[in-house]
Computed example of a mutant assay.
Amino acid sequence: MTTSTVHHRARASKIVARVASGFFLLGLSAVGAQAAGCGATFEPGRHELTIQSGGMERSAVYVIPSNYSGKRKVPLVFDFHGSNSNPQVQLTRSHWDEVAEREGFIVMALAGSLDGELPRTHAWNVPGVTKTDGADDAAFIRDAVKVAKDTFCVDATKIYASGYSGGGRMLSQYICSGFGDFSAAGFVMGLRAGTPEQENGVWRPRRESCQPSRPVSIIAFSGMKDHVNPFDGGGKAYWRYGGEVALNRWAELNGCNGRPRVDDGEAAKVSTYLDCRAGISVMSYMITNADHAWPARTVRFRLASNNGEEKIREVDATDRMWEFFRGSGGELVAGAALKPDCPDEHNTASLKEGGQGTQCSQPVKADSNAPSVSGDL
Protein backbone atom coordinates (compact mmCIF):
# COMPACT_ATOMS: atom_id res chain seq x y z
CA MET A 1 0.00 0.00 0.00
CA THR A 2 1.40 3.38 -0.88
CA THR A 3 1.13 6.41 1.32
CA SER A 4 0.65 9.79 -0.26
CA THR A 5 -0.53 13.27 0.57
CA VAL A 6 -3.16 14.13 -1.99
CA HIS A 7 -2.61 17.88 -1.58
CA HIS A 8 0.82 17.53 -3.24
CA ARG A 9 0.30 14.61 -5.62
CA ALA A 10 -2.89 15.51 -7.44
CA ARG A 11 -2.79 14.07 -10.94
CA ALA A 12 -6.28 15.22 -11.82
CA SER A 13 -8.60 17.98 -10.81
CA LYS A 14 -9.02 18.61 -7.08
CA ILE A 15 -12.43 18.15 -5.60
CA VAL A 16 -13.90 20.64 -3.22
CA ALA A 17 -17.20 19.20 -2.08
CA ARG A 18 -19.56 21.59 -0.34
CA VAL A 19 -22.26 19.85 1.68
CA ALA A 20 -25.45 21.09 3.29
CA SER A 21 -24.06 21.68 6.77
CA GLY A 22 -21.46 24.10 5.46
CA PHE A 23 -18.25 22.10 5.87
CA PHE A 24 -15.81 21.20 3.10
CA LEU A 25 -13.71 18.27 1.98
CA LEU A 26 -10.45 19.65 0.64
CA GLY A 27 -7.62 18.21 -1.40
CA LEU A 28 -9.13 14.94 -2.65
CA SER A 29 -7.66 13.86 -5.97
CA ALA A 30 -10.12 12.00 -8.18
CA VAL A 31 -10.47 10.88 -11.75
CA GLY A 32 -14.02 11.14 -13.03
CA ALA A 33 -16.72 13.63 -13.68
CA GLN A 34 -18.61 13.21 -10.44
CA ALA A 35 -17.45 14.99 -7.28
CA ALA A 36 -19.49 12.91 -4.81
CA GLY A 37 -20.85 9.42 -4.38
CA CYS A 38 -20.59 6.71 -6.99
CA GLY A 39 -18.94 7.34 -10.33
CA ALA A 40 -15.54 8.77 -9.37
CA THR A 41 -12.38 6.73 -8.99
CA PHE A 42 -9.52 7.39 -6.57
CA GLU A 43 -5.87 6.48 -6.39
CA PRO A 44 -5.36 3.38 -4.20
CA GLY A 45 -3.50 3.61 -0.89
CA ARG A 46 -3.40 5.91 2.13
CA HIS A 47 -4.18 9.59 1.58
CA GLU A 48 -4.44 12.58 3.88
CA LEU A 49 -7.37 14.96 3.76
CA THR A 50 -8.75 17.97 5.58
CA ILE A 51 -12.36 18.38 6.65
CA GLN A 52 -13.73 21.75 7.67
CA SER A 53 -15.93 21.16 10.71
CA GLY A 54 -17.15 23.62 13.31
CA GLY A 55 -15.08 26.41 11.83
CA MET A 56 -11.86 24.38 12.12
CA GLU A 57 -9.73 22.40 9.71
CA ARG A 58 -9.67 18.80 10.94
CA SER A 59 -7.27 16.07 9.82
CA ALA A 60 -8.02 12.57 8.62
CA VAL A 61 -6.60 9.74 6.54
CA TYR A 62 -8.55 7.61 4.11
CA VAL A 63 -7.59 4.31 2.47
CA ILE A 64 -8.74 3.18 -0.98
CA PRO A 65 -8.31 -0.50 -1.96
CA SER A 66 -6.77 -1.22 -5.35
CA ASN A 67 -9.96 -2.86 -6.67
CA TYR A 68 -12.16 0.20 -5.94
CA SER A 69 -14.04 1.15 -9.12
CA GLY A 70 -16.52 3.76 -7.88
CA LYS A 71 -19.29 1.76 -9.54
CA ARG A 72 -20.11 -0.69 -6.76
CA LYS A 73 -21.07 0.36 -3.23
CA VAL A 74 -18.54 -0.88 -0.68
CA PRO A 75 -18.42 -1.01 3.13
CA LEU A 76 -16.69 1.73 5.13
CA VAL A 77 -14.79 1.32 8.41
CA PHE A 78 -13.83 4.24 10.67
CA ASP A 79 -10.76 3.72 12.87
CA PHE A 80 -10.37 5.88 16.01
CA HIS A 81 -6.90 6.26 17.53
CA GLY A 82 -6.08 6.23 21.23
CA SER A 83 -4.72 9.18 23.17
CA ASN A 84 -1.17 10.33 22.40
CA SER A 85 -1.50 8.95 18.88
CA ASN A 86 -2.68 9.93 15.39
CA PRO A 87 -4.44 8.35 12.38
CA GLN A 88 -1.25 7.14 10.69
CA VAL A 89 0.03 5.41 13.82
CA GLN A 90 -3.39 3.93 14.47
CA LEU A 91 -3.56 2.41 11.01
CA THR A 92 -0.13 0.90 11.59
CA ARG A 93 -1.39 -0.46 14.89
CA SER A 94 -4.69 -1.87 13.62
CA HIS A 95 -3.62 -2.55 9.99
CA TRP A 96 -7.18 -1.87 8.85
CA ASP A 97 -5.60 -0.70 5.59
CA GLU A 98 -4.26 -4.20 4.92
CA VAL A 99 -7.62 -5.81 5.64
CA ALA A 100 -9.33 -3.21 3.43
CA GLU A 101 -7.00 -4.00 0.54
CA ARG A 102 -7.66 -7.71 0.90
CA GLU A 103 -11.43 -7.43 1.34
CA GLY A 104 -12.20 -4.39 -0.85
CA PHE A 105 -13.60 -1.70 1.45
CA ILE A 106 -12.69 1.87 2.43
CA VAL A 107 -11.16 2.96 5.73
CA MET A 108 -11.17 6.44 7.25
CA ALA A 109 -9.12 7.34 10.35
CA LEU A 110 -9.79 10.68 12.06
CA ALA A 111 -7.61 12.83 14.35
CA GLY A 112 -8.91 13.95 17.75
CA SER A 113 -9.03 17.67 18.47
CA LEU A 114 -6.88 17.75 21.62
CA ASP A 115 -3.08 17.85 21.69
CA GLY A 116 -1.41 14.72 23.04
CA GLU A 117 1.59 14.53 25.33
CA LEU A 118 3.87 13.55 22.44
CA PRO A 119 4.66 15.64 19.34
CA ARG A 120 2.18 15.30 16.47
CA THR A 121 -0.24 13.27 18.57
CA HIS A 122 -3.85 13.87 19.54
CA ALA A 123 -6.59 12.87 21.97
CA TRP A 124 -10.38 12.95 21.86
CA ASN A 125 -12.62 15.47 23.54
CA VAL A 126 -14.93 12.81 24.99
CA PRO A 127 -18.25 14.32 26.11
CA GLY A 128 -18.95 13.96 29.80
CA VAL A 129 -15.43 13.19 30.98
CA THR A 130 -12.99 15.55 29.27
CA LYS A 131 -12.40 18.66 31.38
CA THR A 132 -11.81 21.14 28.59
CA ASP A 133 -13.75 23.42 26.26
CA GLY A 134 -12.26 21.88 23.15
CA ALA A 135 -13.77 21.24 19.76
CA ASP A 136 -16.94 19.20 19.30
CA ASP A 137 -15.45 15.86 18.26
CA ALA A 138 -18.86 14.21 18.01
CA ALA A 139 -19.89 16.79 15.40
CA PHE A 140 -16.60 16.18 13.56
CA ILE A 141 -17.30 12.44 13.39
CA ARG A 142 -20.79 13.13 12.12
CA ASP A 143 -19.40 15.51 9.50
CA ALA A 144 -16.78 12.97 8.43
CA VAL A 145 -19.42 10.29 7.97
CA LYS A 146 -21.39 12.60 5.68
CA VAL A 147 -18.28 13.57 3.73
CA ALA A 148 -17.42 9.91 3.17
CA LYS A 149 -20.95 9.06 2.03
CA ASP A 150 -21.07 12.04 -0.31
CA THR A 151 -17.61 11.46 -1.77
CA PHE A 152 -17.16 7.70 -2.04
CA CYS A 153 -19.38 4.91 -3.34
CA VAL A 154 -20.34 3.66 0.11
CA ASP A 155 -23.03 1.25 1.25
CA ALA A 156 -24.75 3.26 4.00
CA THR A 157 -25.98 0.05 5.63
CA LYS A 158 -22.41 -1.20 6.02
CA ILE A 159 -20.64 1.60 7.87
CA TYR A 160 -18.69 0.32 10.87
CA ALA A 161 -16.23 1.70 13.39
CA SER A 162 -13.47 0.54 15.71
CA GLY A 163 -11.81 2.41 18.56
CA TYR A 164 -8.63 1.80 20.53
CA SER A 165 -8.32 2.97 24.15
CA GLY A 166 -9.32 6.67 24.16
CA GLY A 167 -10.72 6.19 20.67
CA GLY A 168 -12.89 3.41 22.04
CA ARG A 169 -14.20 5.73 24.73
CA MET A 170 -14.95 8.39 22.11
CA LEU A 171 -16.72 5.84 19.90
CA SER A 172 -18.71 4.53 22.86
CA GLN A 173 -19.95 7.97 23.79
CA TYR A 174 -20.70 8.86 20.17
CA ILE A 175 -23.10 5.92 19.96
CA CYS A 176 -24.41 6.64 23.46
CA SER A 177 -25.22 10.20 22.36
CA GLY A 178 -27.73 8.91 19.83
CA PHE A 179 -25.72 8.99 16.60
CA GLY A 180 -26.84 5.93 14.64
CA ASP A 181 -24.29 5.96 11.81
CA PHE A 182 -22.60 2.65 12.60
CA SER A 183 -24.17 -0.77 12.09
CA ALA A 184 -21.57 -2.42 14.34
CA ALA A 185 -18.67 -1.23 16.46
CA GLY A 186 -15.48 -2.82 17.76
CA PHE A 187 -13.49 -1.81 20.83
CA VAL A 188 -9.96 -2.60 21.99
CA MET A 189 -9.27 -1.74 25.63
CA GLY A 190 -11.88 1.04 25.56
CA LEU A 191 -15.55 -0.06 25.73
CA ARG A 192 -17.73 2.28 27.81
CA ALA A 193 -21.50 2.55 28.29
CA GLY A 194 -21.84 6.14 29.51
CA THR A 195 -20.03 8.44 31.91
CA PRO A 196 -19.05 6.98 35.30
CA GLU A 197 -20.93 7.81 38.48
CA GLN A 198 -20.73 6.43 42.00
CA GLU A 199 -23.73 5.21 43.99
CA ASN A 200 -23.42 3.66 47.45
CA GLY A 201 -19.69 3.26 46.90
CA VAL A 202 -20.12 1.40 43.59
CA TRP A 203 -19.09 2.81 40.21
CA ARG A 204 -21.46 2.34 37.29
CA PRO A 205 -22.42 4.04 33.98
CA ARG A 206 -24.80 6.97 34.39
CA ARG A 207 -27.90 5.72 32.61
CA GLU A 208 -28.94 9.14 31.28
CA SER A 209 -25.57 9.55 29.55
CA CYS A 210 -26.06 6.59 27.22
CA GLN A 211 -29.21 6.62 25.07
CA PRO A 212 -28.41 5.04 21.67
CA SER A 213 -30.82 5.75 18.83
CA ARG A 214 -30.94 2.11 17.79
CA PRO A 215 -29.46 -1.30 18.66
CA VAL A 216 -25.86 -1.77 17.52
CA SER A 217 -23.74 -4.91 17.51
CA ILE A 218 -20.75 -4.67 19.85
CA ILE A 219 -17.51 -6.63 19.86
CA ALA A 220 -14.93 -5.79 22.54
CA PHE A 221 -11.42 -6.98 23.37
CA SER A 222 -9.93 -6.58 26.83
CA GLY A 223 -6.56 -7.49 28.32
CA MET A 224 -6.66 -8.94 31.81
CA LYS A 225 -3.22 -7.39 32.41
CA ASP A 226 -4.28 -3.94 31.19
CA HIS A 227 -3.24 -1.42 33.86
CA VAL A 228 -4.25 1.63 31.80
CA ASN A 229 -7.95 0.83 31.48
CA PRO A 230 -8.36 -2.01 34.01
CA PHE A 231 -10.99 -4.60 33.12
CA ASP A 232 -11.91 -4.94 36.79
CA GLY A 233 -12.50 -1.20 37.13
CA GLY A 234 -10.72 1.58 38.96
CA GLY A 235 -8.11 3.57 37.11
CA LYS A 236 -8.46 7.23 36.20
CA ALA A 237 -11.56 9.39 36.54
CA TYR A 238 -12.70 8.69 32.97
CA TRP A 239 -12.74 4.90 33.60
CA ARG A 240 -13.86 3.74 37.09
CA TYR A 241 -16.36 0.96 36.28
CA GLY A 242 -15.09 -2.26 34.74
CA GLY A 243 -15.38 -3.90 31.37
CA GLU A 244 -17.96 -6.47 32.45
CA VAL A 245 -20.21 -3.70 33.77
CA ALA A 246 -19.96 -1.93 30.40
CA LEU A 247 -20.70 -5.13 28.50
CA ASN A 248 -23.76 -5.95 30.60
CA ARG A 249 -25.10 -2.43 30.14
CA TRP A 250 -24.79 -2.73 26.35
CA ALA A 251 -26.61 -6.06 26.51
CA GLU A 252 -29.38 -4.28 28.38
CA LEU A 253 -29.44 -1.36 25.95
CA ASN A 254 -29.63 -3.78 23.02
CA GLY A 255 -32.48 -5.77 24.54
CA CYS A 256 -30.50 -8.98 24.94
CA ASN A 257 -32.42 -11.69 26.79
CA GLY A 258 -31.01 -14.05 29.36
CA ARG A 259 -27.46 -14.50 30.54
CA PRO A 260 -24.49 -14.57 28.17
CA ARG A 261 -22.93 -17.78 26.98
CA VAL A 262 -19.46 -17.97 28.50
CA ASP A 263 -16.60 -20.03 27.07
CA ASP A 264 -13.78 -20.12 29.59
CA GLY A 265 -10.33 -21.27 28.52
CA GLU A 266 -6.74 -20.96 29.60
CA ALA A 267 -5.91 -18.24 27.09
CA ALA A 268 -9.15 -16.28 27.07
CA LYS A 269 -12.75 -16.09 28.20
CA VAL A 270 -15.49 -15.25 25.72
CA SER A 271 -18.84 -13.82 26.76
CA THR A 272 -21.56 -13.73 24.09
CA TYR A 273 -25.09 -12.34 24.07
CA LEU A 274 -26.94 -13.68 21.03
CA ASP A 275 -30.65 -13.22 21.76
CA CYS A 276 -30.83 -9.46 21.22
CA ARG A 277 -33.11 -7.07 19.36
CA ALA A 278 -32.87 -6.74 15.59
CA GLY A 279 -30.69 -9.84 15.29
CA ILE A 280 -27.60 -8.16 16.71
CA SER A 281 -25.08 -9.57 19.19
CA VAL A 282 -22.79 -8.38 21.96
CA MET A 283 -19.44 -10.14 22.40
CA SER A 284 -16.51 -9.69 24.74
CA TYR A 285 -13.07 -11.30 24.50
CA MET A 286 -11.11 -11.23 27.74
CA ILE A 287 -7.56 -12.30 26.89
CA THR A 288 -5.60 -13.63 29.85
CA ASN A 289 -2.07 -12.43 29.09
CA ALA A 290 -2.92 -9.30 27.07
CA ASP A 291 -2.02 -5.84 28.34
CA HIS A 292 -3.01 -2.49 26.78
CA ALA A 293 -1.62 -3.38 23.33
CA TRP A 294 -3.75 -4.19 20.29
CA PRO A 295 -4.23 -8.01 20.33
CA ALA A 296 -2.12 -9.59 17.63
CA ARG A 297 -1.91 -13.05 16.11
CA THR A 298 -1.35 -14.71 19.48
CA VAL A 299 -4.89 -16.10 19.77
CA ARG A 300 -6.71 -18.44 17.43
CA PHE A 301 -10.28 -17.83 16.35
CA ARG A 302 -12.85 -20.29 15.03
CA LEU A 303 -14.42 -18.68 11.98
CA ALA A 304 -17.14 -19.80 9.59
CA SER A 305 -16.12 -20.38 5.99
CA ASN A 306 -18.24 -19.52 2.97
CA ASN A 307 -19.75 -23.00 2.83
CA GLY A 308 -20.77 -22.85 6.49
CA GLU A 309 -18.02 -25.14 7.74
CA GLU A 310 -15.94 -24.00 10.67
CA LYS A 311 -12.22 -23.49 10.39
CA ILE A 312 -9.51 -22.24 12.71
CA ARG A 313 -7.35 -19.35 11.58
CA GLU A 314 -4.66 -17.35 13.31
CA VAL A 315 -6.01 -13.81 13.19
CA ASP A 316 -5.81 -10.71 15.33
CA ALA A 317 -8.46 -8.36 16.71
CA THR A 318 -8.81 -6.52 13.40
CA ASP A 319 -9.51 -9.62 11.34
CA ARG A 320 -11.95 -10.83 13.97
CA MET A 321 -13.76 -7.47 13.96
CA TRP A 322 -14.14 -7.63 10.21
CA GLU A 323 -15.62 -11.13 10.41
CA PHE A 324 -17.98 -9.84 13.09
CA PHE A 325 -18.92 -6.77 11.06
CA ARG A 326 -19.69 -8.92 8.05
CA GLY A 327 -22.03 -11.00 10.20
CA SER A 328 -20.28 -14.26 9.37
CA GLY A 329 -20.19 -15.25 13.04
CA GLY A 330 -17.50 -17.36 14.60
CA GLU A 331 -16.02 -17.47 18.03
CA LEU A 332 -12.69 -17.47 19.77
CA VAL A 333 -11.40 -20.94 20.56
CA ALA A 334 -11.06 -20.83 24.33
CA GLY A 335 -7.59 -21.85 25.43
CA ALA A 336 -6.17 -22.08 21.91
CA ALA A 337 -3.54 -19.37 22.22
CA LEU A 338 -0.32 -19.59 20.28
CA LYS A 339 2.84 -19.69 22.33
CA PRO A 340 4.19 -16.13 22.81
CA ASP A 341 7.49 -15.35 21.18
CA CYS A 342 8.82 -13.88 24.41
CA PRO A 343 7.82 -13.49 28.08
CA ASP A 344 4.47 -11.84 28.71
CA GLU A 345 6.00 -8.83 30.40
CA HIS A 346 7.94 -7.98 27.23
CA ASN A 347 5.41 -9.10 24.63
CA THR A 348 4.58 -5.62 23.34
CA ALA A 349 5.86 -4.29 20.03
CA SER A 350 7.31 -0.84 19.65
CA LEU A 351 5.27 2.20 18.63
CA LYS A 352 6.87 1.97 15.20
CA GLU A 353 5.42 -1.52 14.80
CA GLY A 354 2.01 -0.37 15.99
CA GLY A 355 2.14 -1.82 19.50
CA GLN A 356 0.48 -5.07 18.41
CA GLY A 357 2.42 -7.35 20.73
CA THR A 358 4.10 -9.38 18.00
CA GLN A 359 7.71 -8.68 18.84
CA CYS A 360 9.83 -8.71 21.97
CA SER A 361 10.82 -5.25 23.12
CA GLN A 362 11.28 -3.21 26.23
CA PRO A 363 8.10 -1.48 27.42
CA VAL A 364 7.29 1.79 25.67
CA LYS A 365 4.93 4.61 26.59
CA ALA A 366 1.50 3.30 25.61
CA ASP A 367 -1.54 5.37 24.77
CA SER A 368 -2.23 6.65 28.27
CA ASN A 369 -5.46 8.49 27.51
CA ALA A 370 -4.10 11.45 29.45
CA PRO A 371 -2.93 14.31 27.22
CA SER A 372 -1.40 17.31 28.95
CA VAL A 373 -4.57 19.38 28.65
CA SER A 374 -6.24 17.36 31.37
CA GLY A 375 -5.65 14.48 33.75
CA ASP A 376 -9.24 13.33 33.32
CA LEU A 377 -9.22 12.19 29.69
Results as ranks from 00 to 15, higher is better:
Asp115Gln: 12
Val107Tyr: 01
Arg93Ser: 06
Thr92Ile: 08
Gly54Arg: 04
Gly45Trp: 05
Arg93Gln: 13
Ala100Gly: 13
Gly116Asn: 05
Gly116Met: 07
Glu57Trp: 03
Gly104Tyr: 03
Gln88Cys: 03
Leu91Val: 00
Ala60Ile: 04
Arg93Trp: 03
Ile64Val: 15
Leu118Ala: 08
Glu98Asn: 09
Ser113Ala: 15
Gly45Arg: 03
Pro87Thr: 02
Ala60Ser: 14
Glu48His: 11
Asp79Cys: 09
Arg72Phe: 05
Trp124Tyr: 09
Arg46Pro: 02
Pro44Glu: 11
Pro65Asp: 11
Leu110Phe: 01
Met56Ala: 14
Val126Ser: 10
Phe105Pro: 02
Gly104Thr: 11
Glu103Pro: 01
Ala111Lys: 02
Arg46Gly: 02
Met56Trp: 06
Val74Glu: 07
Gly112Asp: 05
Leu114Glu: 15
Asp115Asn: 12
His47Pro: 05
Arg72Ser: 13
Ala109Pro: 03
Asn67Trp: 00
Ser59Asp: 10
Ser53Lys: 05
Gln52Leu: 13
Gly54Pro: 05
Asp115Pro: 08
Phe78Arg: 04
Arg102Phe: 02
His81Ser: 06
Ala111Cys: 01
Ser83Thr: 11
His47Trp: 06
Gly70Leu: 09
Pro87Leu: 05
Gly70His: 10
Ser66Thr: 07
Pro65His: 12
Glu48Ile: 02
Thr50Met: 09
Ala123Met: 08
His47Ser: 15
Lys73Pro: 01
Asp79Gln: 02
Asn86Ile: 03
Ala109Phe: 04
Ser53Arg: 07
Asn125Lys: 05
Asn86Glu: 12
Gly116Thr: 07
Lys73Trp: 04
Asp79Glu: 13
Ser69Asn: 13
Thr50Leu: 14
Ala109Ser: 14
Val63Gln: 01
Val74Arg: 15
Ile64Pro: 02
Asp115Ile: 10
Leu114Cys: 09
Thr92Val: 13
Gly55Gln: 08
Pro65Ala: 13
Ser113Lys: 05
Gln52Ser: 08
Arg72Asn: 13
Met56His: 13
Arg46Lys: 13
Gly70Asn: 10
Met108Ala: 13
Gly82Cys: 12
Arg93Tyr: 00
Lys73Ala: 15
His122Cys: 08
Leu110Tyr: 00
Thr92Lys: 01
Val126Glu: 09
Lys73Ile: 00
Ser94Tyr: 02
Ile51Lys: 04
Val61Leu: 14
Thr50Gln: 07
Thr121Asp: 06
Glu48Lys: 07
His95Arg: 15
Gly54Trp: 06
Arg102Tyr: 01
Arg72Lys: 15
Thr121Phe: 07
Ser85Gly: 11
Gly54Asn: 04
